[in-house]
């Protein structure tokens, strides 16, 4: 029962794609640029919802969108000028932020020079709040909306600064605990030997 249904969807989508002013597709030029520039394997989920890009039937791909999402998709695709609110269901927040910032028209032009996208992005924006700006993550091939992904050294320093207080507390707790433990052990040892010498002297 399932296949005829999917099949009809397929026709519908194909029609939709062909009738739209611009054929919708992923822009692998950017992915290729990131991989080349950062030497990191990166997939389409860098900007898209799905790791294999927008085309397909899985969640976050065009085949799985409902009517409301299709509308949002259409709106996002017509955001040619910068500054329009973009909420495409096939893009992740970083993808949406790119289109919102530079506009679809400029973005399409940039396909030939993906490296020029970086200076156009908001240098202060940090979607995942990991302390590394999105632009830097774009150039380094680390995920801009995953706070656990980033240049390890930078992540370490950022988190170290953020967590100084708990670290200081833990450090003092460890030092105090070890100090206490040492003296307890030494005390036990001394007490044990003291009782031995006492036994000897009383004998």
């Amino acid at each position: 029962m399932k296949h005829p249904f999917r099949y009809r969807w397929g026709i519908f989508l194909t029609l939709l794609l062909w009738t739209s002013t611009m054929r919708l597709r992923a822009y692998p030029e950017f992915r290729e640029f990131i991989v080349k520039h950062s030497q990191k394997p990166v997939n389409c989920a860098f900007c898209h919802q799905h790791s294999d890009g927008p085309e397909g039937m899985a969640a976050g791909q065009i085949g799985a969108l409902n009517a409301d999402q299709l509308q949002r998709l259409a709106r996002a695709r017509s955001a040619f000028e910068p500054g329009q609110a973009v909420d495409s269901p096939v893009l992740n927040p970083f993808g949406n932020s790119i289109i919102q910032r530079v506009g679809k028209k400029k973005f399409l032009e940039l396909r030939l020079h993906p490296s020029e996208l970086a200076p156009l992005l908001d240098p202060a924006s940090d979607l995942d709040q990991d302390g590394i700006p999105d632009v830097k993550e774009y150039l380094e091939g680390t995920h801009p909306v995953n706070p656990n992904d980033g240049n390890p050294r930078m992540l370490f320093w950022v988190n170290l600064k953020r967590n100084l207080l708990p670290l200081a507390m833990t450090f003092s707790a460890t030092v105090a605990g070890l100090f206490g433990l040492f003296h307890l052990l030494r005390g036990f040892d001394r007490a044990a030997r003291l009782s031995i010498t006492k036994e000897i002297t009383t004998e």
Partner: peptide, 24 residues
């Protein structure tokens, strides 16, 4: 003096452990 030392050790031990316990 050993007895006194032992007492100091235990006092320091308890102090250290309680500080650590408190912080923890």
């Amino acid at each position: 003096s050993q007895q006194l030392e032992t007492r100091r050790d235990f006092a320091k031990g308890v102090a250290g452990i309680s500080v650590a316990g408190g912080l923890l």
